[in-house]
């Protein structure tokens, strides 16, 4: 897809957006492609050193049931991109009861850095969303990726959410986890999975520097843990009562990681 296709069909919105970041030849990063419509309004929000910053702007009134959303970011060799969203993404029920899909595809080249730091995804009552985030990293790529999910708006039960996060490095699997919650998902609220917590998040930080300075496992507050992966990378997993408490845990472990490698 060229990133400018938006079509409304009876079942829901089909929308795609695409970001391409490439070195600008002067030590910075240019954005030769920054294309998104429909629920995707992408803005260049500034430059800091070699890094280009992009934000997905506004409270996204999607995904609604039946929507098919695709977001793609390519960070070419030597480029640096930081992605954020200005508000949480809220999965809402559609008119038809059909599930929505939201696929994110990330590619990071050699010597390139991607900070992928969206605000939380909130699974509202009655929604049904399947997200897949796939990151393909070159051997010399660096990545900081955060994913947060909040199950239900305040005081409401969650919708159904299935979320897969796959990170591959140099063509080999590095991290592959699928989280599933809500109505129709067996055992999701029991003592093995969430145990009553309503916010869940993960960080994946990949940096070739971990090859020389492997991180040690680290536990924080009983509901968050940093653990080295089988490769030059660490993952943080955390559960919390709400989004605020979750962010505090993730931020705290992220700043710990920044003491080990410089990717942050």
């Amino acid at each position: 897809m060229d990133g400018r296709v938006t079509a409304t069909v009876t079942a829901g919105v089909v929308a795609a957006a695409r970001i391409v970041a490439a070195p600008d030849g002067r030590g910075g990063t240019a954005l030769p492609v920054l294309a998104g419509q429909g629920p995707f309004a992408l803005r260049r929000t500034g430059v800091r050193g070699p890094e280009a910053r992009v934000a997905l702007v506004g409270a996204m009134s999607a995904p609604l049931g039946g929507d098919r959303l695709t977001l793609t970011a390519e960070v070419e060799d030597g480029a640096a991109l930081r992605f954020a969203t200005t508000a949480a993404t809220i999965a809402l029920p559609g008119r038809t009861g059909a599930p929505a899909t939201y696929d994110t595809s990330l590619r990071v080249g050699d010597g390139a850095v991607l900070h992928w730091l969206p605000e939380p995804l909130i699974s509202a009552r009655g929604s049904d969303l399947r997200t897949a985030t796939r990151a393909e990293l070159a051997a010399g790529a660096r990545l900081v990726l955060r994913e947060e999910q909040v199950l239900g708006r305040t005081g409401e039960p969650p919708g159904r959410l299935v979320s897969r996060l796959t990170v591959r490095r140099a063509g080999r699997p590095l991290f592959d986890q699928e989280l599933a919650y809500g109505p129709g998902v067996p055992g999701w609220d029991g003592g093995a999975v969430l145990g009553g917590h309503r916010a869940v998040g993960q960080l994946v930080v990949v940096d070739p520097a971990f090859e020389h300075r492997p991180a040690e496992p680290r536990v924080l507050g009983g509901t968050a843990v940093l653990t080295p992966l089988a490769g030059p990378a660490v993952a943080v997993g955390a559960v919390a009562p709400d989004a605020l408490a979750l962010r505090k845990l993730l931020d705290s472990l992220l700043s710990y990681i920044s003491g080990v490698v410089k990717v942050i």
């Binding site: 986890q177 999975v193 536990v219 843990v225 653990t227």
Partner: peptide
């Protein structure tokens, strides 16, 4: 390809395994 195999994850099992090991 092997990538299509299930990858179901249980956050609390992963978090508490690290604590338990200590």
């Amino acid at each position: 390809g092997i990538g299509v195999l299930p990858a179901g994850s249980a956050p609390l099992l992963d978090i508490t395994a690290e604590q338990h090991a200590g």
